[in-house]
């Protein structure tokens, strides 16, 4: 018999920790959505049927200290900020924010980002961008006013953040958030 496979050990431990610390039990679908290094959009689409992406905001701004740290660029460097919500019909499913340093995008990618209606996974696919994802944090957080309004609830939120790495540099930092009652029955 072979040695133990510890391929995803850190993520399992992380999920177990968050469950234990908060005295919660996550559903299988929640666990998958929090730990997968694949496309969440594709999973939601397969589970729910056609889902829709709504861009809440998309703009460029100069990175402050916190944002610069997230994507490992100097303070003041221009980043693309995107805020989207994926939903099925009128039901919001997942809220996502992304920060993308402009210096790491070629013109074609920038053009797609500005169009604001293309999911990031699809942008990567369209432009044949080879990458890897590193999940940084998985946690429970209290919703701010914006999340309360978007989801129509003040319950706790499940969240994760991760980076997409291309050419050994962070191409994108992404945070995904959904209410803790979502994806418990599917």
């Amino acid at each position: 018999m072979t040695d133990k496979n510890e391929a995803n050990k850190a993520l399992i431990d992380k999920i177990n920790e968050v469950e234990k610390e908060n005295n919660k039990t996550f559903s299988n679908t929640q666990k998958i959505l929090l730990t997968t290094d694949g496309s969440i959009t594709a999973i939601l689409d397969v589970l729910y049927g056609k889902i829709t992406l709504t861009t809440i905001d998309q703009h460029f701004e100069n990175a402050d200290e916190a944002h610069a740290k997230l994507v490992n660029v100097p303070i003041g460097e221009q980043i693309n900020f995107r805020e989207v919500i994926m939903h099925k019909d009128d039901k919001p499913l997942i809220y996502a924010i992304s920060h993308i340093p402009l210096s790491r995008c070629n013109d074609d990618i920038c053009s797609d980002l500005i169009r604001a209606d293309i999911p990031i996974g699809r942008i990567l696919k369209t432009h044949d961008i080879e990458s890897r994802r590193e999940i940084r944090n998985i946690y429970i957080e209290e919703p701010d006013d914006k999340l309360k309004e978007l989801f129509g609830t003040d319950e706790e939120m499940l969240a994760r953040d991760y980076v997409i790495i291309n050419c050994d540099e962070i191409l994108m930092w992404i945070k995904e958030v959904f209410p803790i009652s979502h994806f418990t029955e599917i």
Binding site: K4, N5, N8, L11, T35, T36, I43
Partner: peptide
């Protein structure tokens, strides 16, 4: 539908799986 290895998913669902 997951566009990658399934082992990490099985790890999360069933506890550490082996190869």
């Amino acid at each position: 539908s997951i566009n990658g290895p399934v082992t990490p998913i099985l790890d999360v669902l069933y506890g550490e799986v082996r190869l």
